[in-house]
């Protein structure tokens, strides 16, 4: 099932998961346990940063703005990658899209 995602969609971590920030030094890492099926996931570096941002509801536009500020990344590419990650996380049931 495809999730409809736009730059003004708001993302937030779902209630059906529990996560832990295991970042050490410059190496970002978040592990996530899906409480529905018991599967563990890991997000690294920019993915971990995005996960930390969406612990509170955040629009894709605002996440993109933060990432463009914090990382050397092309704004257009950032948006494409962000939409792909959001769709993947939504499909896994790890985030809610509003």
């Amino acid at each position: 099932m495809k999730t409809n995602l736009y730059v003004n969609s708001v993302l937030v971590a779902s209630q059906n998961q529990v996560s832990a920030d295991l970042s050490s030094g410059a190496n970002g890492s978040v592990v996530i346990l899906n409480l529905k099926d018991g599967v563990y996931y890991e997000l690294k570096d920019v993915g971990a940063r995005i996960w930390n941002l969406i612990q509170q509801p955040c629009s894709i536009q605002s996440i993109k703005n933060r990432l463009v500020e914090e990382y050397e990344v092309d704004a257009e590419q950032c948006e494409v990658d962000l939409l792909a990650l959001a769709e993947h996380l939504a499909r896994l049931g790890l985030i809610q899209v509003k």
Partner: peptide, 8 residues
């Protein structure tokens, strides 16, 4: 082992 390697 890094924290995430240790976790898994």
């Amino acid at each position: 082992m890094s924290p995430s390697e240790a976790f898994f």
